[in-house]
Write a protein that binds this DNA or RNA. Sequence first.
DNA 1: ATTCATTTTTTTGGTCCAACAAATAGGCGA
DNA 2: TCGCCTATTTGTTGGACCAAAAAAATGAAT
Lengths: 241, 241
Amino acid sequence: MVLDEVRHFSSEGEASEGGQRISAVDRLVEQIRDLVRERGLGIGDQLPTERELGERFQAGRNTVREALQILKAYGIVEVRPKIGAVLSGQHEVAIRKLFAFQNEISPASFLDVQGFRRIIEVGVGDHLILNATAEDLDRLEAINAALIDNPDVEEAARVDFAFHEALVDMAGNKMLSTNYRLLQPLIVQIMRVGKSQRPAQVDTYRAHLEIIRALRDRDRVAYAYLVSRHLEYGLQFVSGS
Amino acid sequence: MVLDEVRHFSSEGEASEGGQRISAVDRLVEQIRDLVRERGLGIGDQLPTERELGERFQAGRNTVREALQILKAYGIVEVRPKIGAVLSGQHEVAIRKLFAFQNEISPASFLDVQGFRRIIEVGVGDHLILNATAEDLDRLEAINAALIDNPDVEEAARVDFAFHEALVDMAGNKMLSTNYRLLQPLIVQIMRVGKSQRPAQVDTYRAHLEIIRALRDRDRVAYAYLVSRHLEYGLQFVSGS
DNA sequence: ATTCATTTTTTTGGTCCAACAAATAGGCGA
DNA sequence: TCGCCTATTTGTTGGACCAAAAAAATGAAT
């Protein structure tokens, strides 16, 4: 059965500058982003319904849906039945998820991750030595305290990460914190391995205490040494090649 | 017109453990990933057609398309008209794109990015001082040479980034390189601003030369100082608050 | 007859629509 | 106040058509 109404595509002027033909879906992604910017929408605000978006931007509902899937994968929106698409603050989560999407752990990446951490955590030392307040260090100690008598390996690994995360966050650099958190899944996995032995857990607790003490003493050499040693310690659990 | 064949959904056992109902699209994403794993497909290999995937996994073509949009957003596949979906090695590119998706440049993030770079680039110093070969340094100089007499601001910024990227890559840490590259769009934008003035471009070239010299001399103190100063130099072009 | 260029056919992604299923917000009544 | 009902909206499917590109068929020239 032939439809009476035939749709005519690509009637737009086809800018002289060639470029690859932009798909309707990609165009919609941009248009929806613009819409959000125009209206100054924030997290929690909701977008028009799929049908409305389609009508507004001259696109079919399936096309709108495909665009929304992309926005969803990017963590920009979250779609709930009946409610529609609402602006979501899950952007960073999406990045993290994507980052760990096919990053299987290999012995080599163990070394890489620890090397990365060493550069970061030693690197923030200068700033921490100068600017860490007593409250900051108390907070570190509070986090560290949750490490002892924690029978759950998974939970202990999480606390361990929280300690190092807090350390990095104290540098007050958003990019730094974001990048460090990106490796969270990998780091936690390394920690999980280390935490399976009980004595190791106590060693971790003590190493953290020493690091805090170095910060209190504003001893940057000791800090750098202790952090390096602590991270190398974690490697001993990796079955070497 | 009522369809003769009525589809019956959710006939699968509905695992006792509640959990949120998995959408058909998400299920398809997993199934396609499994398919790739099963067949041991690598980059460049192509997936079945959308219609085939739909038939194989009992899903409509639109559903398959939505799943493919997600895989595409993740950089797992690349869809070419007529060819179909082919496995893509653009995973990292996708991460980078996603990372820069809503990271608008603000004066604050300028500072953040430069601070992050300082920690990284200074941090790799120890390794470079010890392990950089003459060939490595020659390569750096070759890249740097492309900086002079380059009238195109965009191209000069790219070369500038390539220099710093090579520096970081020389550390031989994949995680480090990946994370550094993540900031590429932001860094290049900073550089673009700096390159708009001609004298700044020459200054950049000279600063790079000094850094290379410090590495040749295996002078770690000079290296750290020069890198820090070079990165701070870039900040002077940011219109302060 | 073979080879190359051209035309036609087929295949496949891109887009849209109509229909129905499922979920739920919001109204309505007990 | 509580529970039910309805209307609306997303979730999913099948079908139709278009455009582009590959594949196949055709034909001409050597």
